[in-house]
């Protein structure tokens, strides 16, 4: 079965969606991602959707679910790289992805996540710097 790879980068998980998602694939991603958050005790999840041309209400709900579930497990979710056409469409559709953080690209997303978990002690922070 088709799966979307999840990369571990230090305390973060990075998912780059590069295929057109159909519903089952999106559900599988939600499931895999939440399991990975739990297994790796990740502090942040970055979902790069810059290559995604269509986000409908189902996909929007999955993104919202991932954010809410991760939050319960103390991980922040950032959706990065949404295309302008997709953003305009989502607004028209009536979906604002409340609770999901957004950033323009992976770099800014990482920065945002690092600020979110900035309370961690400096030793560890130095460790993250070497990853970025």
């Amino acid at each position: 079965m088709e799966r979307i790879p999840i990369l571990k980068m230090g305390p973060f998980l990075l998912v780059t969606i590069q295929v057109d998602l159909y519903d089952r694939l999106a559900l599988t991603l939600e499931n895999d991602l939440i399991n990975m958050v739990s297994k790796t005790e990740a502090k942040g999840v970055l979902i790069d959707i810059s290559a995604v041309s269509i986000v409908d209400s189902f996909m929007g709900r999955i993104l919202g679910n991932i954010a809410s579930m991760s939050k319960i497990m103390d991980a922040a979710t950032v959706v990065v790289g949404m295309q302008p056409a997709v953003a305009i469409t989502l607004v028209e559709l009536g979906l604002t992805l409340a609770g999901v953080h957004t950033a323009l690209d992976v770099e800014q997303g990482m920065e945002l996540l690092r600020n979110k978990i900035g309370q961690l002690d400096t030793d560890e922070e130095g460790l993250y710097d070497s990853f970025i």
Binding site: D23, I54, D56, S57, F58, P84, V86, I88, T89, E92
Partner: peptide
Amino acid sequence: LVNQTKLITAASELVR
């Protein structure tokens, strides 16, 4: 592109 995206998204909802 924007109009295309709106059309395909609407179609996606309806086909689901």
